[in-house]
Amino acid sequence: MQNANLLYHKTVVYSIISLLALPIAATLIYSFSSRWGATILPDGFTLKWYGQLFSDIRFLEAFGRSLLVCITALLLALVLVIPLAFVVFYYYPGYDRLMNVLILLPFAVPPVVSSVGLLQFYADAPFPMLGTPWILIGTYFTIALPFIYRAIANNFMAINLKDLVDAAHLLGASTPKAFFHIILPNLKKGVLASMFLSFSFLLGEFVFANILVGTRYETLQVYLYNMRQTSGHFTSALVMTYFFFIFICTWLGSRISKSNAL
C-alpha cells in the first residue's frame, strides 16, 4: 500500500518536473542545433551560437552592466542593512515587527505602477537620474531589502546577539569592536546566502530596467528583449547562458544557507 502510494507521489512529482523542464530542455537543444526546422530532430549540433554570443561586445557589455548594477545595489543594501539590523536587534528589539512591514512595502505596488511613479518623481530631479544606472541601483536596493534584512535578522536571532555583545562589553570591548570582532564574522553565512539569492533574482529583473533606463544603459534583460528579432538559436544560447548563471548563484546560495561549515 505504502509502495503504491510512494509510486503515485513519485509519478506526480516527476511528471510535473518533466513538464517544467521540457521548455528548458528544448531551448538547450535548440541553442546547440545548427538548424531545427520542419524535422523532429535537429539537423546537426554546433557551438556556433555560443561563439557568436560570447564574441558580441554588446552582450558582454550588457552582462557587465547587469553585474555592476546588481552588485552595487546589493553592497549598498548590506552596508545600510547590517548596522540597521544590529541597532534594531540590540537596542530596540520591538522594532523588528515594524521593520518587517517596512521592508515589504516595495512589493505592495506592482513594478509597472511603481516605475511610472518613479519616472514622474525623478523627472524634475535637480540632477539627471532617469536613464542612468543610479536610479536602477536605488530601485534594486529596495527589492533586495527584504531578502537581505530577513536573512541577517534570522542570523542575529540564531547567534543570540544580545548576550554576545554584552559579554564582549564586559570583557572590555567597545560596541564597534564587539561588532567587528564578533558580530560581523558570525554574519558570513546569512550575508552570503542572501547575496546569492537576491543576486539571481535581480539579474532577471526586466520591468524596472526597461522602463526606467531602457537602451540608455542596456542591461542583460533589456539586451535579451532587444535581440528578440534575431535568430532563435542565438537567443536560445543567450537564455541558456543566463539560466546557467542563475542556477549557479541559486545553488551557491542554498548550499551556503544549508551548510554548517561557515
Binding site: 548576550d163 559579554a167 564586559l170 570582532h181 564574522p185 558570525n186
Partner: peptide
C-alpha cells in the same frame, strides 16, 4: 566585572 551567562554567550567564530 566578569560575568557568565546562562546561554554561555561564547563567540561562535
Amino acid at each position: 566585572i566578569g560575568m557568565v551567562f546562562q546561554s554561555y554567550a561564547l563567540f561562535p567564530n
